[in-house]
Amino acid sequence: MKIFALVSLAGAALTVVNALPIVVNNRTAFVVPLTRNPHFKPDAQAQIAKLNRRYPGLNVLAASAGRIPLINVHPDLEYFGPVSVGTPAQSFKLNFDTGSADIWFPSSTCTAAACRKHTRFNAAQSSTYQKDGRQWSISYGDGSTASGFLGSDMIDVGGIQVRQTIGLATAESAQFGSSPDDGLFGLGFSTIESVKGVKTFLDNVIAADLLAQPVVSVFLPSERLFNGKGGEYLFGGIDSSKFTGSLIYVPVIRKAYWQVAIKDTLYNGQSLGQGGEGIIDTGTTLVIVDEAAAQAIHEGIDGALHDPEVGWLVPCSVRSDSANRVSFSMGGGAFHVPLADLAYQEVGSGYCYSGIQGGKYGLWILGDVFIKNNYCVFSQTTSPSIGIAPLAVN
């Protein structure tokens, strides 16, 4: 189908001139030379529409992929990228979050201090905005909250455009005031939308056949490996230059968060006998496991200790240790986090706050400390999965 479409597009740019007779095997044939039409203007969408009208069963899709470049908030605290909303476009810096499903940012009618520190959406200035009328609110695990109302407008994510229901905050808790991004872009499943019945961005673009593949690929660049630069979310595609080996697809066991079975935790390849169910969450900075797993992990790290007021600490000297590693076994593969990324932030006396913390009973959370070492492809097919492979490091 790709070859057929390309031939059709190329042919539209050419004009037939007079046929010339030639002799082939003692028989006369006619050659039709072609010259380029100087007035031709390429229009891929029109050509695809023409193909679909002519061959209704062919279903050639005008699908593509959209790249969102990311800004790394020091020290690998979070990552955000630009999203355009409305007509004419209003630009927002949004935190892409596989651990939630709502897309939201402040309304121009919000006067809270946290709202005033960020770009606010002015619905009156968008010709494509549509009122919804439903109230909206959301809360997160750190106690932060936002509330307001729903509306819908055109959203552009790396060139992928669709009409989307959005939350417009008229109130935000103080925690959001210190955040460098304007709001959140949820990439979880619609089952965890704050308002029942709202479809996610992925639901809408997949239903509209706007993506070449029903995936979002995530490359989070750490400051240690990439100076925090070059990160991206790739909607509709997979960039094989970003990882080594082959992706191993881990089945999603519950379509809410991107929830998977963690079969085991390993230290330098040796089983610690610790596993559970967890989510791979781009919106969480650290890795959070239960206390038994956290203790088993840190027992293998020389000098690690647990402070009841702070949590697990490791010597900051492990920042130079990329050989020893913690691994998580999922889907038949083992995916690694080197000790170098466990020295997350200095707390004094030569100690750093560990990138792996305990105390989470129930779902584990494999946050950015895990993802910045592994390329992750969130595949929203009828049987969703997450493809994982180690990052390619030059």
Score class of each variant (00 low, 15 high):
residue 169 A to T: 15
residue 56 P to T: 08
residue 142 D to R: 07
residue 274 Q to L: 02
residue 10 A to L: 14
residue 107 S to K: 04
residue 66 G to V: 06
residue 213 Q to N: 11
residue 200 T to D: 05
residue 81 G to S: 03
residue 190 S to L: 02
residue 76 D to L: 01
residue 78 E to Q: 11
residue 344 Y to F: 15
residue 152 S to N: 15
residue 106 P to W: 05
residue 264 D to H: 07
residue 241 S to M: 04
residue 121 F to L: 02
residue 55 Y to D: 04
residue 198 V to S: 03
residue 180 P to E: 06
residue 38 P to C: 09
residue 174 A to V: 11
residue 251 P to F: 05
residue 365 I to K: 01
residue 159 G to F: 07
residue 222 S to E: 06
residue 285 T to A: 10
residue 249 Y to A: 05
residue 59 N to A: 12
residue 314 V to Y: 01
residue 204 N to C: 01
residue 200 T to H: 08
residue 189 F to E: 04
residue 147 S to Q: 14
residue 164 Q to K: 09
residue 368 D to L: 10
residue 36 R to Y: 08
residue 190 S to R: 13
residue 161 Q to F: 02
residue 231 G to C: 06
residue 242 K to R: 15
residue 277 E to A: 09
residue 116 R to N: 14
residue 100 S to K: 05
residue 187 L to E: 08
residue 92 F to V: 10
residue 112 A to D: 15
residue 148 G to F: 10
residue 116 R to M: 14
residue 51 L to M: 15
residue 149 F to E: 09
residue 315 P to N: 06
residue 357 Q to I: 06
residue 177 G to R: 08
residue 159 G to Q: 07
residue 59 N to H: 14
residue 348 G to R: 10
residue 139 S to F: 06
residue 216 V to F: 13
residue 37 N to V: 04
residue 166 I to Y: 03
residue 48 I to G: 07
residue 232 E to I: 02
residue 372 K to T: 01
residue 132 D to I: 08
residue 368 D to S: 05
residue 249 Y to R: 10
residue 59 N to D: 12
residue 386 I to S: 07
residue 5 A to R: 11
residue 297 I to C: 00
residue 287 V to S: 04
residue 293 A to D: 01
residue 358 G to Q: 04
residue 53 R to V: 11
residue 33 P to Q: 07
residue 212 A to K: 14
residue 48 I to Y: 08
residue 391 L to F: 08
residue 63 A to N: 14
residue 26 N to A: 14
residue 199 K to N: 11
residue 66 G to W: 06
residue 220 L to T: 06
residue 166 I to R: 02
residue 289 V to E: 02
residue 198 V to Y: 01
residue 392 A to P: 01
residue 205 V to T: 12
residue 228 G to A: 05
residue 56 P to M: 09
residue 53 R to L: 12
residue 37 N to I: 05
residue 20 L to H: 09
residue 125 Q to L: 13
residue 112 A to H: 09
residue 252 V to Y: 01
residue 362 G to E: 06
residue 41 K to R: 14
residue 116 R to P: 00
residue 172 E to K: 07
residue 75 P to T: 11
residue 139 S to V: 04
residue 66 G to P: 08
residue 255 K to Q: 15
residue 365 I to D: 03
residue 202 L to T: 06
residue 276 G to P: 04
residue 93 K to P: 00
residue 371 I to H: 01
residue 215 V to Q: 09
residue 324 N to D: 15
residue 45 Q to I: 11
residue 243 F to H: 07
residue 158 G to K: 07
residue 384 P to R: 07
residue 231 G to L: 04
residue 385 S to A: 15
residue 39 H to S: 14
residue 29 A to R: 13
residue 223 E to R: 13
residue 120 R to A: 14
residue 236 G to T: 02
residue 4 F to K: 11
residue 283 G to H: 08
residue 371 I to L: 15
residue 31 V to K: 11
residue 311 G to I: 05
residue 272 L to R: 00
residue 257 Y to R: 01
residue 74 H to R: 11
residue 295 Q to P: 00
residue 164 Q to R: 07
residue 286 L to P: 02
residue 132 D to N: 15
residue 276 G to Q: 04
residue 271 S to F: 07
residue 16 V to S: 12
residue 22 I to E: 11
residue 207 A to P: 00
residue 244 T to V: 14
residue 288 I to S: 14
residue 134 R to V: 08
residue 386 I to R: 06
residue 235 F to N: 01
residue 3 I to C: 06
residue 233 Y to R: 02
